[in-house]
């Protein structure tokens, strides 16, 4: 390539007006060996460019496997089964509404429980019998309080008499 030509191109290059094709021409020119000394600095630059273009990413690319979403769904399924089980169980319990539905053992347990409850309640009744004494005391107290009214009456009259005097 003529020196004139390349100098023109280089000026355009410096002004960032060259196209990619023209830049390729320039690089091709500087790839050869006999470069006029005043263009030596360009040569260094293009050497560097072609050198750094060869650099490669040599490390192996490691990509983590996509997180398996199956496990999340397994937990959801587990919760659903548990809930369904509990619901079913509760339903079954509620279905037994009359004594006929109960088995022999259940009936026995029921009777025993009733017996225990009866025992407790009889003890409670006995205790409440003793409360009668308190009731008596309280009625007497009320009577006494009623008698206090006489005293009030007396006081009133006494005051009036004192005033009149």
């Amino acid at each position: 390539m003529a020196l004139d030509n390349i100098e023109q191109l280089l000026e355009k290059y410096d002004n960032a007006e060259t196209t990619l094709a023209e830049e390729a021409q320039i690089r091709a020119y500087f790839a050869q060996n006999d470069i006029p000394p005043h263009l030596e600095s360009y040569k260094l630059l293009f050497q560097y460019v072609s050198h750094s273009r060869q650099e490669k990413f040599t490390k192996a690319v490691t990509l983590p496997a996509k997180r398996k979403t199956i496990y999340q769904w397994v937990s959801v399924a587990a919760v659903v089964t548990l809930m369904a089980g509990a619901y079913y169980q509760v339903n079954q319990m509620n279905q037994k509404t009359s004594f006929d539905d109960l088995s022999h053992e259940e009936l026995l347990a029921y009777n025993q429980t009733i017996e225990v409850f009866n025992l407790v309640s009889s003890k409670l009744n006995k205790g409440s019998g003793n409360l009668e004494a308190f009731k008596l005391v309280s009625s007497k107290l009320n009577e006494g309080a009623g008698n206090l009214n006489y005293l009030k009456d007396f006081q009133n009259t006494a005051k009036r008499i004192i005033k009149n005097n």
Binding site: Y13, D14, N15, A16, E17, S41, Y42, L44, L45
Partner: peptide
């Protein structure tokens, strides 16, 4: 373009 031109000129000047 302006930035590139500036960069190219700086590089060459210093070189």
């Amino acid at each position: 373009r302006v930035a590139l031109s500036r960069a190219r000129k700086t590089i060459r000047e210093q070189l």
